[in-house]
């Protein structure tokens, strides 16, 4: 029957393409989350990587994945404005939490790489490099060497120490704890942004963020 022949051809072609794609890119993720069990008190202690005054009236939390294009746009067009306009003036404390999504094979390693740079006090510089070159390393089979190479381009990073850190399991637990915290807060996509504990329904652009920050500053001033 031609009908079943057509069905069979569609099924075979589709499954063949799927199998090919899985064999081509379903390779080794260099590292994966570790097994971590946390109670609510422990979750409350989870630390992101922050910039800005601890007592700033506006606290912006971002849950992000270095391999996510939306996070890349946020890092290129919104983060610099937050840092230049509000963090430097003491209005905002900006905290970056890792939330590597399982669909991105290099995201967990990238989060660890960010932490390895943070160990040397260069997180934000390395953060900008990783997002800036996202399209280069995202499609690679193994991004480890690229991440080590990028560390050389960040002034002040000891590449040897960075390599040693990245090639170990260091910070795997911290990244996993960040993920657990995100899950506990209902984060299921990236980037997810919270302003003073309120989760934003969508990713804000610079103008929306400006309005939201002004509202929070106004609310903080009114309660004083």
């Amino acid at each position: 029957m031609p009908f079943y022949l057509i069905l069979g051809v569609v099924a075979l072609v589709g499954l063949g393409l799927l199998a090919r794609q899985m064999m081509a890119s379903g390779g080794e993720a260099a590292t994966k989350p570790v097994a971590v069990t946390m109670d609510p008190a422990q979750l409350a202690q989870v630390q992101g990587i922050s910039v800005g005054r601890a007592d700033a009236p506006v606290q912006i939390f971002e849950f992000a994945d270095f391999q996510c294009p939306g996070c890349g746009e946020f890092a290129r067009f919104v983060s610099p404005i937050i840092k230049e306009r509000y963090v430097q003036s003491g209005t905002v404390r900006y905290v970056y939490y890792d939330f590597p999504l399982p669909m991105h094979p290099h995201a967990f390693l990238a989060s660890r790489a960010g932490r390895c740079a943070n160990e040397q006090g260069k997180f934000w510089e390395y953060h900008d490099v990783l997002y800036g070159r996202q399209s280069q390393w995202s499609s690679q089979r193994d991004a480890t060497d690229s991440f080590i190479e990028y560390a050389r381009d960040v002034q002040g990073v000891d590449q040897g120490k960075f390599r040693e850190c990245l090639r170990s399991d260091r910070f795997a637990r911290e990244v996993t704890e960040n993920m657990k915290l995100g899950e506990s807060l209902g984060v299921n996509g990236t980037p997810t942004v919270f302003i003073n504990g309120k989760r934003l329904p969508s990713v804000p652009g610079p103008k929306e963020l400006d309005v939201l920050i002004q509202q929070e500053v106004g609310a903080a001033a009114a309660t004083e």
Binding site: M22, P69, M103
Partner: peptide
């Protein structure tokens, strides 16, 4: 399979697939 992490990079061309699939509306 992509969402569950079995496929690696999605074949999309424009890159929009990843933006959509990583958004909170993918659930």
């Amino acid at each position: 399979l992509y969402k569950l992490g079995y496929l690696g990079v999605i074949q999309c061309g424009t890159g929009g697939c990843e933006v959509v699939q990583t958004s909170q509306y993918a659930y």
